[in-house]
Amino acid sequence: MRHYLLYIVIFSFLVSCEDVIEVETPSEAPRLSVDALLRINEEEPITKAIIKVSETSSFFKENTPIKVSEMTITNLDQQNTTTNPNQIIFTLIEPGVYEAIKRTTFFTEGRLQLSIKYNNQTYTANTSYVPAVPITNLEQGNGTLFEGNETEIILTFVDEDNRDDFYLFDFDFNEYLVSEDEFYQGQPFKFSYFYNDDVKAGMHVNVSILGVNEDFFNYMNLLIIQSGGAQGPFQTPVATVKGNIINTNNNGSLDTTENTNNFALGYFAVCQTYSSSLTIE
């Protein structure tokens, strides 16, 4: 079938090479785009938080890294003292990349508020730390799907039985999957994930499980559907997907139902993360 399709395309080109094809692509005003997914390892006493910022451009171009006036995270439930301030200020380390270092408990205990000042506008988002569970086993399987040349990996974890959990799985190579524990709460859960033939023997694969809240779960689920599973959470989506980072200049509200168009792309989330890796055979 692929050969026939190729012949049709070549023939059409030869008989109509002077035709001009105009493709209408999505367009809107540039937006601030923020990669503020913080992955927390509770075993580390100190956490290095990295946030990436850029501005959207035309549909076929990469986002442009930018410099912001100020970027902070404030722990709204932590007492502010001279020796232990309840706020961290991010420092630019390379174009579009900001970094701050703080004790891990700063991120895991209390409500957190991200604030970014850019082009005389203030963008704000609130979140709280979400726990996850460890990966108990990661192995390569020998199953396939449609083409017959996919690579199967099998992941196992045990869900907590005393809470409703939502998970984001990062399968490396910008591939993501979301899951909720409605049908396996408190139980061991095993499932397969399949890579296409771009994943070859000898390649190293790093897989992570992140705890997320229901809002971020819904956001990521929509992004994955729109992008066909091949797009990260902070890339420009096929259609504009509203996250939780709101422009608060107009009315100071963080209610996303009120700020229907005053928002940045991306999401601010602080997630406990467990990772495991293997080498494809």
Rank of each mutant, 00 (worst) to 15 (best):
H3N: 10
I10P: 02
F11I: 15
S12R: 07
F13M: 12
L14G: 01
S16K: 07
V20W: 11
I21T: 11
E22G: 09
T25F: 13
P26R: 05
S27R: 06
P30M: 04
P30I: 08
L32R: 04
L37N: 14
L37F: 12
R39W: 06
T47L: 15
E55P: 00
S58F: 10
S58R: 10
E62A: 12
E62Q: 15
P65G: 08
K67P: 01
V68I: 10
M71Q: 08
M71D: 06
T72H: 00
I73R: 04
I73P: 00
T74H: 02
L76F: 05
D77L: 09
T81V: 03
P85L: 05
P85F: 00
Q87H: 00
I89R: 09
F90P: 04
I93G: 00
A100C: 08
T104W: 00
T104C: 06
F107Q: 07
T108M: 07
T108R: 07
Y118C: 10
N119I: 10
Q121H: 14
Q121V: 03
Q121T: 09
Y123M: 04
A125E: 03
A125N: 03
A125V: 00
V130N: 13
V133L: 11
I135P: 00
T136N: 11
N137A: 15
L138S: 04
L138E: 04
L138C: 02
N142Y: 12
F146Q: 15
E150W: 00
I153P: 01
I153F: 03
I154A: 03
F157K: 03
R163I: 13
F166I: 05
F171D: 06
D172T: 11
E175I: 13
D181M: 06
Q185Y: 02
Q187S: 11
F189P: 07
F191L: 09
S192R: 03
S192K: 02
S192H: 00
F194N: 06
N196M: 06
D198G: 08
V199Q: 01
A201D: 13
A201H: 05
H204L: 14
S208A: 13
V212Y: 04
F217R: 11
L222H: 09
G228C: 07
Q235E: 15
Q235W: 11
P237K: 02
P237D: 01
G243L: 00
N250I: 13
S253I: 05
D255W: 02
E258L: 11
N259K: 13
Y267S: 02
Y267T: 05
V270S: 02
S276C: 05
E281I: 06
